[in-house]
Design a protein around this nucleic acid. Structure first.
Lengths: 243, 243
DNA sequence: TCAATAGTGTCTTTGAGACACTATCCG
DNA sequence: CGGATAGTGTCTCAAAGACACTATTGA
């Protein structure tokens, strides 16, 4: 390889790795953050749980590949999807050199229609705190990385809304933040900040089974991600410790 | 492809893309932020400037590949290196499907010993505001992405120190922040924040040509990145608009 | 009227930004 | 002593966190 290999290129001269896209799929189920895993049926890591993923096709972009993967696993099309990191250590897959571009996806509960039954033997939602360990390949690391990113972005963006149904109560929103951050938040301060951010729209509707009914809100989609800065609190360092 | 292609894998069944690692190399030269570009000698984009990069080898990790690339171009070994994003649109390279894992590197001025002369016809440092446009491939986008990341991380981490020599004055540090953020900062507020962060060590030495000599500082390497949060000011949203 | 849940206001502390003068060195 | 550059302190304002009671509903 020369100093500037792109200048004298002959594709056949180089071995090519396989490239996969893996998608860490998060969803809220029964008020808890869950992640979707698939059970491997073959060598290597037969019987281990893994993050769903697959090889890219030559004519689709990485993101298209991630969306396809996501739809194959969950049947869901309208999701929040973000590229996470690319994992490519030699030896992470014993079969051949595999480079994996990891994405993470947040899906809304109303759209959770798994292709196979949720209780299927080979595709299952796990609460993030009860993920079987170890996972196949370096998927523990990928999952940890995804959780870090989620936690970190929660604090300066509106991604949390991507996990909620169309309408929700303030306490449901607060609950997500507590779930992901792993700590309790003060209700009054939380309400204040959310309101000041101006990202919610009052639907006028209410919901309640027992006790005082709660006001239902909707996320203001007219305020596009990036148009404003919603900071829940101090941003932490992104722990980009992978690779 | 099945729903879970990893479970029934036959490497030969899938076409494989080429994988490159491109490294956006930043350095401070004559008090200005520069980026290293190489001029292409062959089709495609013959004569265009490009971000240095090369094909990965089958037995090296992505980061090793980036370090190798960096050393080939600059002869530099001890640098700050961080994975940026992976670009993989089909058609971004007319020769074949190429997936490029982009890194960005910050190198210190004292180590700037280019292999070829800096005035060489095919490798050159450009001030970031005077980069020739368009670059080869989708490299404009990659460069923009790297600049965004740099700007964004400047505000909540200590990467700026990676651009400075071993010892430096407070005004030199302030100058980097101004360079990258593209705005003037108040000297007194800047000094206060830096001091409060406790990341600097006074060397006791001074430097001055004209006027009052300036105190020389050293970055406290004992405080590892991530051990503390150094926030210069409000973190902005990471603009992860790529792909 | 009680159990259950939703919703609200104030004070204190901390950090950010605006702002201008004094100190030291060299020639 | 004058030109050049380095270094310092205070006030104001905004945002964050701590903190406890009232409101509404259905059984």
């Amino acid at each position: 390889m020369t100093d500037q290999p792109q200048q004298a290129y002959d594709a056949s001269r180089y071995d090519r790795p396989s490239v996969t896209v893996d998608v860490v799929i998060f969803a809220l189920k029964e008020r808890e953050l869950h992640v979707l895993l698939v059970k491997r049926r073959n060598w290597p890591f037969e019987g281990y749980w893994a993050i769903p993923g697959g090889f890219i096709k030559m004519d689709e972009s990485l993101e298209e590949s991630a969306r396809r993967e996501l739809e194959e696993e969950t049947g869901v099309r309208d999701v929040y999807l973000e590229q996470l990191y690319t994992f490519g250590d030699p030896g992470r897959d014993p079969r051949t050199r595999v480079i994996s571009v990891a994405y993470f996806a947040l899906i809304r509960p109303e759209t959770q229609t798994l292709r196979r039954s949720e209780e299927s033997d080979d595709v299952r939602w796990f609460p993030v705190r009860e993920v079987p360990s170890p996972l196949a390949f370096d998927h523990d690391r990928i999952l940890r990385y995804a959780e870090d990113r989620l936690r970190s972005k929660l604090e300066y963006s509106t991604i949390a809304f991507q996990l909620l149904p169309e309408v929700f109560t303030l306490l449901e929103l607060k609950h997500i933040y507590e779930q992901i951050l792993g700590e309790e938040l003060d209700k009054r301060n939380f309400y204040r900040k959310i309101r000041e951010a101006g990202v919610l729209e009052d639907t006028g509707r209410m919901r309640g089974n027992r006790g005082r009914p709660a006001r239902l809100y909707r996320f203001r989609r007219d305020r596009r991600e990036g148009d404003f800065v919603f900071r829940w609190r101090e941003a932490r360092l992104h722990h980009e410790d992978a690779e």
